[in-house]
Design a binder for these strands. Structure first.
Length: 420
DNA sequence: TGACGTCAAGATCCG
DNA sequence: CGGATCTTGACGTCA
């Protein structure tokens, strides 16, 4: 059982995926972007390894316009060395990677042009995983598509188009229930007939249920037999509803109590769990720390090091509470720890607390900073007090200082994540 | 025809 | 001119 997250990281330096718009596409731009993205992917994977995250979804944007006809480059050849190096990192560290074409890749469309684009896109995803030397446990997760007023024939069309795919692509394909059209029963029906593994998505099932009396564990068990040896461990998608947003919007963070309630109800072998959540790797680390057999306080101390200034900024009370909580070096109060973190992060910031946290971080530099840097920092504080600049600018400046003075402890701090 | 969802690139505005 | 903020893109389905 592994727990992972999708596509992008928060608070990891040099780990973003870049793209460009169609009209700016050129071969030179493309080469530049792919080199940049592959380097980011390498950094993400190394981050995952050091945080013991063994499940990761690679962004479909890793190769910009990977399946667009504008893109004539043989990228697998051009970037053979980079791709090979990344593949080695993945394989030697036993990370499981997957990909997930977006909602616009529709294999069952009645429009043959849309179908051929969908096939091109699925082929691109498969080729990317092939280029890393990943075996068939590296999955491509796909939705069934549209209904077009006639679900039965739309499902038949999916089956026919699926059968026409390359064998190597079929080995990777997994189908997933969606939040509007194809419920888990529909998808299990297709999966059983075509022998395709099914990834169960709990939030989609909540929004688009087949039978509300059946719980998550029931459906996950129903999917289990469809995962054969070559497919690797069963996978599911797990997410929670953002209560302030539309149905289907993912929560900012995984609420740990709700997750553990779900997790503890799972019977049999636990599946790989792909989290879909705004705070990405942060929730992955949280859920891993709460389910691991390695119950050592050092892991909580590492987490605390990253969270502490964000907590100080939101709630000095909770800051003190956690310091108290982590005093007993023989204990592992992980759930309590994250409960306080979640509660603190849900608080609103205020000027005094933000200033206090910023000054704590400034403490790392106030001796070593140049006169100019000191002046600039004080000027930013003054402007913030007058409300003529935001604390984000102060944070940006402090982050730049962290990089310049190589303060790794600060560079990895969640304090600098704007959304937090 | 616009909403849906997603994020950053690109465009524009502001001081 | 740099930084902040707004708009667009890229995709297909459905109301």
């Amino acid at each position: 059982m592994s727990i992972g997250y999708a596509c992008m990281t928060l608070g990891v330096p040099n780990a973003t995926i870049k793209g460009c718009i169609l009209k700016n596409f050129s071969n030179e731009k493309f080469v530049e972007l792919v080199l940049y993205n592959l380097n980011s992917l390498k950094n993400i994977l190394n981050y995952n390894i050091s945080n013991d995250i063994r499940l990761f979804r690679i962004s479909s944007d890793i190769i910009p316009f990977g399946s667009n006809e504008i893109n004539k480059t043989d990228w697998a050849k051009i970037f053979y060395n980079e791709l090979n190096e990344i593949g080695n990192i993945i394989r030697s560290n036993k990370i499981r990677v997957s990909m997930h074409p977006g909602q616009y890749t529709v294999l069952n469309s009645p429009d043959s042009k849309i179908v051929s684009r969908a096939i091109e896109d699925i082929n691109y995803h498969s080729k990317f995983l092939d280029s890393l030397g990943i075996d068939s446990s590296g999955k491509i997760i796909l939705h069934i598509g549209g209904v077009y007023g006639d679900k039965t024939s739309a499902m038949i069309r999916f089956s026919e188009h699926y059968k026409a795919l390359d064998e190597s692509v079929k080995l990777r394909l997994v189908i997933e229930n969606d939040d509007k059209s194809y419920n888990i029963d529909d998808v299990l029906d297709i999966g059983t007939k075509l022998n395709i593994p099914v990834a169960y998505d709990n939030l989609h099932n909540k929004l688009n249920p087949y039978d509300e009396k059946k719980d998550d564990n029931y459906w996950i068990s129903q999917c289990t037999p469809l995962w054969k040896k070559n497919d690797g461990p069963q996978k599911i998608h797990y997410s929670q509803q953002n209560k302030l947003k539309n149905n289907g919007s993912h929560s900012d963070s995984i609420n740990i109590n709700e997750f553990l309630e779900f997790y503890n109800k799972l019977s049999g072998t636990k599946p790989d769990i792909m989290l879909e959540v705004k705070d990405k790797n942060l929730s992955a680390v949280k859920c891993i720390n709460c389910t691991t057999n390695t119950k050592i306080i050092k892991n909580l101390e590492l987490e605390w090091g990253k969270y502490k200034y964000s907590i100080l900024e939101k709630s000095p009370n909770d800051y003190l509470k956690i310091r108290q909580l982590l005093k007993d070096k023989t204990a592992y109060p992980v759930v309590e720890f994250y409960n306080i973190i979640e509660s603190a992060l849900s608080q609103k910031k205020n000027f005094g607390n933000s200033l206090n946290a910023a000054l704590h971080v400034w403490g790392y530099f106030k001796e070593t900073a140049t006169t100019q840097e000191k002046l600039y920092f004080n000027n930013l504080l003054k402007k913030a007090a007058e409300n003529s600049t935001s604390f984000d600018r102060i944070k940006n400046f402090l982050f730049k200082l962290s990089l310049k003075y190589k303060q790794d402890y600060l560079i990895n701090s969640y304090f600098f994540i704007p959304a937090l």
